[in-house]
Design a protein around this nucleic acid. Structure first.
Length: 480
RNA sequence: GUCCCCAUCGUCUAGUGGCCUAGGACAUCGCCCUUUCACGGCGAAAACCGGGGUUCGACUCCCCGUGGGGACGCCA
């Protein structure tokens, strides 16, 4: 346990919290909880034009939903501008930064020209030694990156990483509108917040060398770095809008469980022998940054669904029942006037949890329990609601009507009796009954369905099926 | 284009020089269970990117190639 160890998750509210961000947050959180360290949340909102309150809200909501709780923050960079100004002035005063008067257009041209020559497209240093301002131009503040030597650091996941300073840019610290930029605020914040371990996505690996130069210029102690491999889409390109980069909260809407998401995400780049299922407690116990993979991982929906199904099957019934109710409400399948007894939802969950991969799917599969009217699947009706079955349905209707105990056992007895009287197999009557009650050919066990649905609804639907068969028979007789 | 990083079944991965005729999981296929669909059980197919080294011995170490990813913004 070490409370002096401090990590942070620093999302930018220029978009929703997506899978990649969650994975970064999760690894930070697991590392912190494993170490007994502090987990800090920092909102990197220096891009004022693209940051929104809505995204901030969605990020906090997403983390809370997943149970990734933070110990400090959320800090917001827009509230810390004074701190950045002080540090920028310090660098300026020490000659470690300078005003640059080059315009955006000029810089763009220089970049293209450099690339054409086969050189790294970095700033050419025009204003590096300038000491007189250019009138009518508002300058930016640039960092004087060392021109000689190289930067080298030991990444916890990657090992030794080395970059020549000649490759590095004199990066902009403060924009002409006097707001600070990412590489600058990120370093200043990590210094002032005493962050000891910077755990972030691989896409920041090349930023690290630039930032290390900044740490050195500011005379600050260096944190440890750990760069997580990226999550790729099925096309092996970085996660994009098309697959997986939508808000994590849409996973909640689609009926995914937080524990499934966490279990899935942690296995992207981390493993503990052959174990696939991990509780949060186990993860906190077992997780180690040193064992994180270097290679990027492709996101696989199927496996997430498998895990989600696992947690639906093993989860607390009452909790699942509540989530199912939410889903049904969202779908508009629950009318106000529906008379649903309290124990119906848990019973529905029990009957469906083996066969549903998401709660949304479960809500779809459970609709016929709650809707007033059902409609028949055309093919199913054609195949199973035929005239020859009508006498059996009638008898079933009569005998079920006589039951006072509507338990599965009692219902099974009724079926057994009818089966023995007519020497038919269960399958011959089960499917027609299934279609009559659910509208389709797929459902939980038929006794279970009947018992859960309740006497009133069952009798009504059997009656309706008989009418349907009769109507069809008449139509067929007329030559239709 | 320049630089950085990476490389085991379709996918996630185990593997840290001999235990590997390479293990597990998802997905796929077959069989069994079964009132439908699932679940479950059993089984099959499926990989060490290529070439050089190092070594008695390489999936494991080194080099080159190839492939993939990332960065190169007054975005983060």
């Amino acid at each position: 346990m070490d409370a002096d160890i401090r990590v942070r998750f620093a999302p930018s509210p220029t978009g929703h919290l997506h899978l990649g961000g969650v994975r970064t947050a999760l690894f930070n959180w697991l590392f912190a909880r494993h170490q007994g360290a502090k987990f800090i949340l920092r909102i990197e909102d220096t891009d004022r034009s693209r940051s929104t309150e809505e995204y901030i809200h969605s990020i906090l909501e997403g983390l809370s939903w997943l149970g990734l709780d933070w110990d400090e923050g959320p800090y917001r960079q827009t509230e810390r501008s004074g701190i950045y100004r002080t540090y920028a002035e310090q660098l300026l005063a020490e000659g470690k930064a300078y005003y640059c008067y080059c315009s955006a257009e000029e810089l763009e041209q220089k970049r293209i020209a450099a690339q054409k020559r086969g050189q790294p497209p970095k700033y050419d240093g025009t204003c590096r030694e300038r000491n007189t301002p250019i009138p009518d131009r508002v300058p930016v503040i640039r960092f004087k990156t060392p021109q000689e030597g190289e930067v080298s650091f030991q990444d916890i996941i990657r090992g030794q990483v080395t970059v020549a300073n000649s490759q590095l840019d004199d990066l902009i610290l403060v924009r002409s509108d006097s707001t600070p930029t990412y590489n600058f605020v990120n370093v200043v914040d990590d210094i002032t917040m005493a962050i000891t371990h910077v755990i972030r996505g691989d896409d920041h690996l090349t930023n690290t060398s630039r930032q290390i130069n900044l740490y050195m210029a500011l005379g600050a102690p260096m944190p440890a770095f750990a760069h997580l491999p990226m999550i790729l889409g099925p096309d092996k390109a970085r996660l994009s809008k098309r697959h997986g980069a939508e808000s994590i909260l849409t996973y909640r809407e689609k009926g995914y469980l937080p524990e499934a998401l966490i279990n899935y995400l942690v296995r992207l780049g981390w493993a503990y022998g052959d174990q696939e299922i991990f509780s949060k407690e186990e993860l906190i116990e077992l997780f180690e940054l040193e064992k994180v993979n270097k290679a990027p991982a492709v996101f696989n929906q199927e496996k997430l669904l498998w895990l989600n199904n696992h947690y639906i099957k093993t989860g607390n019934i009452n909790r699942m029942a509540e989530l199912l109710e939410d889903q049904l409400k969202r779908k508009g399948s629950l009318n106000q006037d529906n008379q649903i007894s309290l124990d119906t939802f848990p019973r529905v969950v029990k009957s469906l949890q083996e066969r549903c991969k998401t709660l949304e799917e479960m809500a779809e599969a459970a609709e016929y329990f709650f809707k007033e009217e059902i409609s028949y699947d055309a093919q199913a009706a054609r195949k199973f609601l035929r005239p020859d079955i009508a006498p059996l349905l009638e008898e079933l209707l009569r005998r079920l009507g006589q039951l006072t105990d509507f338990s599965e056992a009692a219902i099974q007895e009724v079926f057994s009796y009818i089966l023995s009287q007519h020497t038919i197999k269960l399958v011959n009557i089960a499917q027609p009954v299934r279609v009559s009650l659910t509208g389709g050919t797929v459902s939980p066990g038929i006794y279970e369905v009947i018992s859960i649905m309740g006497k009133e609804k069952v009798l009504g639907r059997l009656q309706k099926a008989l009418e349907y068969i009769e109507g069809h028979e008449a139509a067929t007789a007329l030559g239709h």
